[in-house]
Simulated assay, not measured.
Amino acid sequence: MDRQPTLETERLVIRPLAEVDRDGLFAVAADPALWEQHPAHDRWRREVFDALFDEGIASGGALAVVDKVTGRIIGSTRYDRYDAEDGGKVEIGWTFLERECWGKGINPEMKRTMLAHAFQHVALVEFRVGDTNYRSRYALEAIGAVRTDRYELGKYDGKRVVHLYYEIDRTSFASGPLAG
């Protein structure tokens, strides 16, 4: 599976994230409101963002989300944890969009095309989200992702962090809210 494709929607170009995107993406990430419910709530700080950006580039699956009309970067997302076994699965995550995009259907538009690409290669897409990140949890449920009984415990900044797992399989995608 190509985890860094170039995908286009009506309003977006989703393309491989590149080093030249660092400053433009930081301008988006520098808004503390983006991270207020996220376990890593300080990604608006330059040094924390830079570590996230570097990790994304190293992952081989990070994508820039670009407004098709203006050519301006408005966020990022990632394909990660690809496994070809048993029909295949991939994780989609690390998504953030500038606040001006919230409530305008940008996330579902982006996820529809990302899921369509993924389901050409895998049978299952997983999402991992912080348990107190209600904004992201609601967004996942709105696109048809179902919470599983799986979770992951970790630590960030000396505090316990719980990540919940959501998933969409090929069949539920084809008949779910993003079908079309």
Results as ranks from 00 to 15, higher is better:
153 L>G: 14
49 F>H: 08
117 H>K: 09
58 A>Q: 12
18 A>S: 11
159 K>M: 14
5 P>A: 12
166 Y>M: 06
65 V>M: 06
127 F>L: 14
38 H>K: 05
60 G>W: 13
167 E>F: 05
51 A>W: 10
123 A>K: 02
110 M>S: 01
150 R>K: 13
164 L>A: 04
35 W>L: 05
149 D>C: 11
165 Y>W: 12
112 R>K: 15
124 L>A: 08
18 A>P: 03
32 P>R: 00
38 H>Y: 07
12 L>I: 13
24 G>D: 05
107 N>Q: 11
115 L>S: 01
21 D>W: 00
7 L>Y: 07
3 R>A: 15
112 R>Y: 04
108 P>W: 01
55 E>R: 15
161 V>Y: 02
90 V>C: 05
111 K>Y: 05
148 T>S: 14
163 H>N: 15
169 D>V: 08
17 L>E: 02
65 V>H: 02
110 M>N: 01
171 T>S: 10
179 A>L: 10
47 E>I: 12
126 E>G: 01
106 I>A: 01
162 V>H: 09
54 D>R: 12
34 L>F: 03
98 E>R: 06
34 L>D: 00
28 V>C: 03
138 Y>M: 12
118 A>N: 06
89 K>H: 12
88 G>T: 09
49 F>E: 03
21 D>F: 01
126 E>C: 04
47 E>L: 11
172 S>W: 09
161 V>D: 02
169 D>Q: 09
111 K>C: 00
161 V>W: 01
40 A>K: 04
22 R>H: 15
121 H>L: 12
118 A>R: 00
150 R>C: 07
53 F>G: 00
11 R>I: 11
43 R>S: 05
71 G>I: 02
135 R>M: 06
27 A>M: 06
65 V>K: 00
55 E>G: 15
160 R>Y: 13
125 V>T: 02
101 C>V: 10
178 L>D: 03
155 K>M: 15
103 G>I: 05
172 S>E: 10
103 G>D: 03
98 E>L: 05
90 V>I: 14
170 R>F: 09
146 V>A: 05
89 K>D: 08
46 R>C: 09
117 H>F: 07
129 V>L: 03
99 R>I: 13
89 K>A: 06
20 V>T: 07
91 E>Y: 03
16 P>Y: 11
74 I>L: 14
122 V>N: 00
101 C>T: 12
92 I>T: 04
41 H>P: 01
74 I>Y: 08
90 V>H: 00
123 A>V: 02
108 P>T: 03
176 G>R: 04
114 M>V: 09
114 M>Q: 07
104 K>H: 06
141 E>Y: 07
167 E>G: 01
39 P>T: 14
125 V>R: 00
8 E>H: 10
128 R>N: 06
105 G>K: 05
11 R>A: 09
124 L>W: 12
119 F>N: 02
96 F>C: 12
29 A>C: 12
109 E>C: 07
178 L>W: 06
169 D>C: 09
77 T>K: 02
60 G>E: 11
167 E>W: 05
155 K>A: 15
177 P>L: 10
172 S>N: 11
152 E>L: 15
114 M>Y: 04
180 G>E: 12
41 H>V: 03
81 R>M: 13
68 K>Q: 08
103 G>C: 04
44 W>C: 05
62 A>S: 13
43 R>M: 05
179 A>F: 10
163 H>M: 13
43 R>W: 01
54 D>Q: 11
130 G>L: 07
78 R>N: 09
86 D>I: 12
30 A>D: 03
39 P>I: 13
